[in-house]
Amino acid sequence: MGGWLDSHLVSVVDGVAFGLLLFTLAVGLSLVFGLMDVLNLAHGTLYLAGAYVAYALSDGSLWALLLALVAGVAAGTLGGAALTLLTQPLARRGHLDQAVLTLGITFIAADLLAASFGGEVLPTDPPTALRGSADLLGHTYPIYRLVFIGVALAAAALVYLVFERSSLGALVRAAVADRDMVRALGVDTRKVLYGVFAFGAALAALGGVLGAPILGPGPGVDETVLVLSLVVVVVGGLGSVRGALVGALLIGQVQTLGVALLPEYAPFLLFGTMLAVLVVRPRGLLPSAVRT
C-alpha cells in the first residue's frame, strides 16, 4: 500500500489540485441552480475569462498575480451580475430557455476571447517566486501547485464556513430551501440572488486566475471545465457546498489518478464514475436537504 501510494503520489496530489480547481467552479454552479433555479451554462466562460486575465497580466511578479486576482474577481462579479440580469426575465420560462440563452452567451464570449487572444492554448507561467519544484516525500513537485492547493483549500474552507456557519449563509440556505418564506420575513431575496450569482461567478473567475498555470486558457477550455463541473455537481448533489467539494475531489482523482492507472479507458472513466454514483445515490453523494 505504501509503495503503491508512493508511486502514484504525484497523481494523487495533482488530483487534489485539480479537484479544488473544479470546486471553485462547481460551488457557484450548484448554488446558483439551487438558489435561483438557473442553469448557467456560461459558467465555464467565467473561468476562461479569469484565466485570460491572469495570462494578460502575468509578468512573473507576485504583484501581477495579485492584480490579476483583483481584476479577475471584479470581472467575475460583473459577469455574474450581468448574467443575473439576463436570466431573470426567463425565470419563469424554464431551464431549456436558460440553457439556450447561456449557451449563446458562451458562444459569443468564446468568439470574442478567441479573437483577442488567438486560437491556441496559452500556457501561463506562475510568478517567478513560485516557480520551480519542491521535494514532496521524495518526489519533485511544482511549488505553484502546492501553493494553489493551499490557497484553494483556504478558499473552500472560507466558502464552507460562510455558507454553513454564518448567519448570512443561513439566509442563503433558507432562500435555497424556500424563497417565498424568506421573502415573507422581509428580506429582499433579489439581493440574495444577485449576491450569490455574483459570488459564484467571482469564485469561478478566481479559479481561472489561479488555475491558469495549471489549465491554461484557450478555445474549448470553457467547455471542458463546464462539463467537468456539471459532472461534479451531478455527482456531488445539487445545491450543496459539501456535495460540490466531495464531488470535485472525487472527479479530480478520476481525471488524474484514474487516467494514470487506466490510460486506455480514460474517456470512459468520467462516465463510469457518474454511472456508479448515480446508480447507488440517484440524487448525488451529498444533496442539499431540500428538494430542488
Partner: peptide, 24 residues
C-alpha cells in the same frame, strides 16, 4: 460562433412562442 451565439440569444428573447411548445 459569434453569429451562432447571437442567434441563440435572439431566439430566446424574441421567439418565446416558438419556445413554448417545447418547454420542459
Amino acid at each position: 460562433k459569434l453569429l451562432l451565439g447571437a442567434l441563440f440569444v435572439t431566439a430566446v428573447y424574441t421567439l418565446p412562442r416558438g419556445l413554448t411548445g417545447i418547454r420542459v
